[in-house]
């Protein structure tokens, strides 16, 4: 590992200042489970490491007043998401997505902020959080801004975060509908998604058997988490029959843009998108 300067700021302003000073050559560390791997392998050699774990502003899972939205601090660990009663009660698909990730030892270190900011196309929390219409709350030297999580990712390993900016929290709107996350990986534990699918809808008309505000988000099959918007339109175009679900699943597979890699081929990934989107939609319909 190359030498680096080490900082452990106590405030958000101090952290932004250090990050700005290094002008992109500094890396934030929270859980470190992704960063340290890359640094050990020599794939990353930042000039400075900024430990953001001491920033109180980035902590906590809270229900916000007035909106009742859920605010998940960027430092919230995957294990905290998996175990939080508040998340279990209203956003169980998010808890189950966290539960599919890594081991308890890694989940106790890895954070939701890290999962977002590392911007791996396979990040498990991204499809479900985007399906739940989450917003990224970002803070930097110029103050706070809010970006729909859907717009947060710009490429593999890339996000909209500018120099000196930090992800403070992820805010999830109050849930009235249903949601599900399905991950496909060869192993049940300790494995990265070959395909991950998050599906959510806000409303359901039982008479017409029609869902409203449907979101279908695909992980690990494009440079960024991808909304299958045509498939969503198909789902919302009429009653949720088995035929319509089959059609939507096929459309989602066409919308995906996977690559061939060690975990799966393009053909296989597309096929799995179809299977998982169908399963996800059927799962939601059957739970009505």
């Amino acid at each position: 590992m190359k030498p680096f300067d080490y900082f452990s700021p106590k405030t958000l302003a101090e952290a932004s200042e250090v990050l700005s000073r290094y002008n992109g050559d500094a890396k934030m560390i929270a859980g470190g489970t992704d960063l340290l791997l890359k640094m050990k392998a020599g794939r990353l050699a930042p000039k400075a490491i900024v430990n953001i774990k001491r920033l109180a502003e980035l902590r906590g899972i809270t229900q916000l007043p007035i909106t009742n939205n859920l605010s998940i601090g960027a430092l919230t660990t995957l294990e905290e998401i998996k175990r939080s009663p508040l998340i279990h009660q209203h956003y169980s698909a998010l808890a189950s997505a966290a539960a599919t990730m890594a081991s308890v030892q890694i989940r106790n270190l890895a954070t939701v902020g890290g999962n977002m900011c590392n911007a791996a196309p396979s990040a498990d929390l991204a499809p479900i959080l985007i399906a739940l219409n989450a917003v990224a709350v970002i803070n930097g030297v110029k103050g706070e801004r809010r970006v729909a999580l859907e717009e947060f990712f710009t490429g593999p390993g890339k996000s909209v975060l500018g120099v000196g900016e930090l992800l403070v929290s992820v805010e999830v709107p109050k849930q009235e509908g249903k949601s599900i996350y399905i991950k496909h990986s060869p192993r049940e534990h300790m494995d990265i998604a070959v395909v991950g699918v998050g599906v959510a809808y806000r409303g359901f008309n039982p008479l017409a058997q029609q869902a409203a505000d449907v979101r279908i988000v695909l992980g690990a099959v494009a440079p960024t988490p991808l909304r299958a918007k045509k498939a969503e339109e198909e789902v919302m175009s009429g009653s949720l029959t088995k035929e319509r679900i089959e059609r939507a699943a096929k459309i989602a597979a066409e919308e995906s843009k996977p690559i061939d890699d060690v975990r799966g081929s393009v053909w296989y990934r597309r096929k799995m998108v179809e299977v998982l989107v169908r399963r996800g939609l059927l799962g939601l319909v059957n739970s009505n």
Partner: peptide, 10 residues
């Protein structure tokens, strides 16, 4: 936690 994936300074 896995102590190999944790900086002591952190």
């Amino acid at each position: 936690i896995t102590s190999c994936m944790t900086l002591a300074a952190d």
